[in-house]
């Protein structure tokens, strides 16, 4: 059977540009690199930092996204909503080094010096805030999309049954958006574990303290330890696959329910 033009162009380009780099990386895995990486305590600390900071960033993202969802539902004409909506798009287009620098200037030594010599900068809290800054928009967008899909009559009826807007949002709207809440959390988590630039700028790359998997890979490449960098990268891919599977399972579960 003859292939059409889209198949003839898309398939080879996809294989070359998306699949091949991953395969090339995995192809460079070697037993020595794996052994040395798994024996490196800094690697395990970076895994722990990545997962803990990403969980905290995703939780914070979801918390604020719930607030954004409320504004998206009830206060679309307010100036604050317009500002928040604009700011949601900003981190997507902004170089993440700029985001990191902005965080550094906002919460660094000059403004938060009373917390320590560097303010919040170069702490695990800074890593969380850097991850949050770039991942929150994804959670907010997930909630806003769910609000758009929701049957608005549910809220109208809840209001006539005595609910204030806040009550209707928490008692009726949010419980019907379970899938979006889950997706928002997982998207924010996955964006957080992949963040590098903002984390390096604001959280630094202090082994065991603020080093995350992305910066661990960077460090090992700089040190010429390609085998260890590849092993850590393969671990990142594994972690990403787990996260993507969770998202997929969430969707399948919803379809079956």
């Amino acid at each position: 059977m003859r292939r059409n033009l889209v198949e003839a162009v898309f398939v080879p380009l996809f294989l070359l540009l998306v699949v091949f780099p991953v395969v090339a990386l995995l192809f460079h895995l070697n037993p020595e690199g794996i052994r040395r990486t798994l024996a490196d305590s800094f690697f395990w600390m970076s895994v722990k930092n990545t997962i803990l900071a990403a969980l905290a960033a995703a939780a914070l993202s979801l918390f604020l996204a719930v607030g954004f969802g409320y504004y998206h539902l009830f206060k679309q004409h307010s100036y604050f909503y317009r500002l928040a909506n604009l700011m949601n798009d900003l981190p997507i287009a902004l170089p993440h080094t700029v985001a990191g620098l902005a965080l550094l200037l906002a919460f660094g030594r000059k403004t938060m010096g009373f917390l320590g010599s560097t303010g919040l900068a170069f702490t695990l809290t800074a890593v969380v805030l850097a991850m949050f800054f770039v991942s929150y928009p994804l959670a907010a967008r997930a909630l806003a999309a769910a609000v758009d899909r929701m049957e608005k009559e549910l809220i109208e009826v809840a209001r006539t049954l005595g609910d204030t807007p806040v009550e209707a949002y928490f008692k009726v709207a949010l419980p019907t958006m379970g899938e979006a809440l889950f997706a928002g959390f997982i998207l924010a988590f996955s964006r957080s574990i992949s963040e590098f630039a903002a984390v390096i700028m604001f959280g630094g790359n202090l082994p065991a303290r603020t080093q995350v998997l992305a910066s661990y890979v960077f460090t090992k490449v700089e040190e010429g330890e390609l085998g260890m960098a590849v092993t850590a990268s393969a671990f990142c891919i594994l972690l990403s696959l787990v996260v993507v599977s969770l998202l997929w399972l969430g969707k399948v579960g919803k379809q079956r329910a």
């Binding site: 049957e151 009559e153 549910l154 109208e156 009826v157 809840a158 009726v172 019907t176």
Partner: peptide, 8 residues
């Protein structure tokens, strides 16, 4: 009571 029942 709206057009669709809008049950929670």
């Amino acid at each position: 009571v709206p057009q669709r029942p809008a049950l929670f």
